[in-house]
Design a binder for these strands. Structure first.
Length: 430
RNA sequence: GUGGCCGUAGCUCAAUUGGUUAGAGCACCGGACUGUGGCUCCGGGGGUUGGGGGUUCAAGUCCCCUCGGUCACCCCA
């Protein structure tokens, strides 16, 4: 075997590149319709940008090295520290709320597995400077509309949503001390991967009373709004959190994406910095990893940049979404397609054919013609292979009257036309 | 970083279980069907059987190492 790309990295041949471009177009289109503007930052950052936030242990997951100037650097594994720095640097000058998005290529040094490579593209959508729950709803609406733009409806994708404040209130209400709450979060985060006994032990080791541990797991698994409302009727903190979720759901109804929504208190998100509503999008059949994840992290900018500003955002990678779309038959083939193949009828018409191609190209149409002398039979085959919709025959009629014959592959019909009419018709169909 | 499974042409797979020069379909290139595609037919290029070492008269096949793929664990931007 010849040496291919590095492990976990991808070559994008035109077919794959077309699919990637198709995805990016949908991401950008939806983000712009929601008023978000695009930014970017450096793909290479100082290593301590990540160790300050996540600790030294993440270095093992990073593509890091020492550059020729002796600096410790890393290929960016996530966009959040970069965007936090950028926003913090101009915190006072930026119009609030800040609505930004980016499509960075991110890197991690890990063994690859299904849905996780060492490199991927991730749409990042963030809102800074707004603490109202309407911002949370706006954010999830963007994610859901992107699913819809890719052909994935509420039957294909579910948005599992939780609120760390609600979970915290429930846990307190069950009699757990504040110091033990992180242990509860850690256990709930693993609820699908570990046994009941292991989860309970994890919590009791963290100072959670055994009775409360079992109760919390029950409540989280049920994730039933009405049950919580009746059982915690006297608990103001829980009721307030439930009311916030009601408002959130109502807003999503107005956004037209409520059918995607499902309260699911097992969603915690691994990162410690989330402070409010958190969510993950999954395929409805549960075959794949999370397609998208995010939430509110109101304290992060203060921690990273010293600027106190509420913030929320999500990341949506190209790998899992691409796998899901392919599995559901929603991903276009990526096959090349052009508008016209210009065919010189005889070799004496080659210069005329190039002139015809030039004029169609000037009208913005995609045009190919044979770069060597070929019989018409060959040209028609080549035209099909190139994905041409129509063939323009350039012969004596062009020299005499400026006319060409146009054959439409879809209908098989052929008729005489002038170049002007040809360009007009093609643009109408485009 | 740890473990399971798997590496034969660009792709999907054969090779009588250790036995001549590793084959086929698809794809690609060329040709025939003699001014109009899809079909059909003919031909061609393309492999250090991932790489290295070992056992053997003989290795794609058995053994070891290594690299890569894949799935899971760890972790989760």
């Amino acid at each position: 075997m010849s040496t291919g790309a590095l492990p976990g990295f991808r070559d994008f041949y035109p077919e794959q590149f077309a699919q990637r471009a198709w995805l990016f177009e949908r991401w950008r289109d939806v983000a712009r319709r929601f008023g978000f503007v695009e930014y970017d930052g450096p793909p290479l950052e100082p290593l301590d940008l990540y160790t300050k936030k996540s600790g030294d242990e993440i270095v093992g997951q990073l593509y890091n090295f020492e550059d020729k100037g002796g600096r410790q650097v890393a290929l960016r594994p996530e966009m959040t520290p970069t965007v936090a720095r950028m926003v913090a640097a101009r915190a006072n000058a930026l119009r609030k709320p800040v609505r930004w998005f980016s499509i960075p290529q991110l890197f991690r040094y890990e063994r690859q597995q299904k849905g996780r490579l060492r490199e991927h593209f991730q749409l990042n959508v963030d809102i800074f400077g707004e603490s109202d729950v309407a911002a949370d709803a706006e954010l999830l609406a963007v994610a859901c509309e992107i699913m819809r733009a890719c052909g994935l409806g509420p039957d294909d994708v579910v948005a599992r949503v939780s609120d760390r404040r609600l979970l915290t209130a429930l846990v307190r209400g069950a009699g757990v001390a504040d110091e033990a709450i992180p242990a509860v979060f850690a256990a709930v985060d693993k609820i699908e991967r570990e046994s009941q006994d292991a989860l309970v032990k994890k919590m009791t080791d963290g100072g959670v009373p055994a009775s409360a541990a079992g109760r919390v797991l029950e409540l989280v698994r049920a994730s039933d709004v009405e049950q919580l409302r009746t059982e915690y009727a006297g608990d103001g903190e829980v009721i307030a959190a439930l009311e916030r979720f009601d408002a959130y759901a109502e807003l999503l109804g107005a956004h037209g994406v409520r059918d995607y929504l499902r309260l699911d208190l097992t969603i915690v998100r691994g990162l410690a910095y989330y402070t409010g509503i958190v969510f993950e999008l999954f395929d409805a059949k549960g075959e794949f990893r999370a397609v998208c994840g995010g939430g509110r992290y109101d304290n992060l900018l203060a921690a990273l940049g010293g600027v106190d500003m509420p913030a929320l955002g999500f990341g949506l990678g190209d790998v899992v979404l691409g796998e899901l779309l392919k599995a559901r038959g929603k991903m276009p083939s990526g096959a090349a397609a052009i508008e016209f193949w210009v065919a010189p009828v005889e070799t004496t018409h080659r210069l005329s054919a190039i002139e015809v191609a030039r004029r169609l190209r000037a009208d913005g149409l995609s045009v190919e013609y044979p770069l060597k002398a070929q019989t018409l039979s060959k040209q028609l085959k080549a035209a099909q292979a190139a994905g041409a919709r129509r063939v323009v025959f350039v012969g004596d009629a062009f020299l005499e009257r400026g006319e060409v014959e146009v054959k439409d592959f879809a209908t098989g019909q052929q008729q005489a036309s002038t170049l002007h009419l040809l360009a007009l018709r093609a643009q109408e169909h485009a």
